[in-house]
Amino acid sequence: MAITGCSSGLVVTAAVALLLLPAQYYVPDLYSTLEDPLANPPQPETSATRAWYDLTFPHLPPLDLFVTVTLLIIGSLTYICEWIQRKLLERRIVKLNQYLGASVERLRAWDAQREQQETTLKMVQNATSEYNLLLYLLLRQHRCLASHVPPASTCFLDNSDELHFLRNASVDA
Rank of each mutant, 00 (worst) to 15 (best):
D54T: 05
N40S: 13
A48L: 13
Y53P: 01
W110M: 11
R167G: 01
L18W: 13
I80V: 07
L19D: 02
G101F: 03
A127N: 13
A48Y: 09
A15R: 11
S153L: 15
S8A: 12
V171C: 01
H164G: 04
L65N: 07
W110T: 08
T154V: 06
C155N: 06
W110C: 07
V124S: 08
D29E: 15
L134P: 01
P61F: 06
Q24C: 02
R114C: 07
N132S: 04
D172P: 00
L30N: 05
D158T: 07
I73P: 00
T13C: 12
W52G: 02
I80N: 03
M1H: 08
V104N: 04
E118A: 10
Q117T: 08
S8V: 08
R114P: 00
V124C: 04
A2E: 05
A146Y: 06
D64F: 08
Q113K: 09
L30R: 14
R108K: 12
A51H: 05
L21N: 02
S32K: 08
V171H: 10
A39E: 14
T13K: 03
R86S: 05
L163G: 01
Y136I: 00
I93E: 10
T68D: 00
L145D: 09
A109S: 14
L21S: 04
L107Y: 02
P22H: 03
L121N: 14
V69K: 10
D29L: 10
N40Y: 11
S7A: 03
D172T: 07
A102V: 04
Q98K: 13
S103R: 14
H148D: 10
T78E: 04
I74S: 01
E162Q: 15
L71P: 00
W52H: 05
M1V: 01
S153D: 12
R92C: 02
C6N: 04
Q113E: 14
L137G: 09
P150F: 09
W110D: 15
L21K: 13
P28C: 03
G9K: 03
L89N: 14
S129F: 06
D161K: 09
H164V: 09
N40K: 13
D29G: 01
A169W: 00
F66V: 05
R91Q: 15
L121S: 13
A109Y: 03
F57L: 14
F57H: 10
W52P: 00
Q43S: 07
L18F: 11
D64C: 07
V124D: 08
L38H: 14
F66L: 15
I74M: 09
V67P: 01
N126H: 09
N126Y: 08
Q141H: 13
S103W: 04
L135T: 09
T13W: 02
H164T: 11
A152K: 12
F156S: 03
L163N: 08
C6E: 06
A146H: 10
V12H: 14
I74G: 01
T70E: 03
E45F: 06
Q24T: 02
L100E: 15
P150L: 10
T46A: 08
T68N: 08
Y25N: 00
T128W: 03
C6K: 11
E115T: 05
L71C: 02
L133V: 08
L107K: 11
T119K: 11
W52M: 06
I84T: 04
A146F: 03
T120Q: 15
R86P: 00
I3S: 06
P44L: 12
A127S: 13
T4Q: 12
K87L: 07
L38S: 11
R114D: 04
T128L: 15
R140Y: 04
C155F: 02
Y26C: 01
